[in-house]
């Protein structure tokens, strides 16, 4: 079931590519994940037939995963020429940063603080963002979220810092 892609990557793609072999990296990724999981599963007992232990499935699947990792890595070394696309680091930093900021602020400061923070940080991920537009949009969205989640759906989510009495 060998799946290869003999077609040459397009010129545009090559420019953005990191010069790393796709399948080799995929293989190494799987092997690393499998190793971590197997290590964590070491203390668990795989058990016997009559008492399948807690360790059986984690160990078996991580071994299987490692097997596929080796297979993919070999496939890459054998000659699958595909390269990895470039990463969008700006996206990773601001999008994930926004989510982390939300998680950190929602309980101590509430929705009306955490929401705008998350939106403003995430908007920096996109070079097209216009400052005034996003500020206005954030204000509207925050109000909408309050109405939707608090007033209509009654979710038990903090709204404002407890210092202010709510």
């Amino acid at each position: 079931m060998v799946v290869e892609d003999p077609a040459e990557p397009s010129a545009g793609k090559r420019e953005r590519s990191l010069n790393l072999n796709l399948e080799v990296c995929a293989g190494i990724f799987l092997i690393a994940a499998a190793a971590a999981a197997y290590y964590a599963a070491l203390p668990l007992d795989a058990g016997s037939m009559s008492g399948v232990g807690s360790g059986l499935l984690p160990k078996a699947t991580s071994l299987g995963l490692a097997g596929f990792g080796v297979y993919l890595a070999l496939l890459g070394l054998w000659g699958s020429p595909e390269r990895i696309d470039g990463f969008s680091f700006r996206g990773i930093i601001f999008v994930l940063g926004a989510i982390v900021a939300f998680a950190a602020t929602v309980r101590p400061f509430g929705l009306l603080v955490a929401g705008p923070i998350a939106m403003l940080i995430s908007s920096m991920a996109d070079p097209d963002t216009r400052p005034l537009e996003i500020l206005l949009f954030t204000a509207c969205m925050t109000a909408a979220c309050y109405l939707l989640f608090k007033v209509v759906l009654h979710l038990p989510i903090p709204v404002l810092p407890p210092l202010l009495g709510y």
């Binding site: 926004a98 989510i99 939300f102 998680a103 995430s122 969205m141 989640f149 038990p156």
Partner: peptide
Amino acid sequence: YRLMFPAIIIFCCIGIYSINNSPTEVL
């Protein structure tokens, strides 16, 4: 899209938080 994705993010964050009221799950 420059407005769409921050909106998606904020809805997702609130949504995940609401499952178990847990900021850790958002992380």
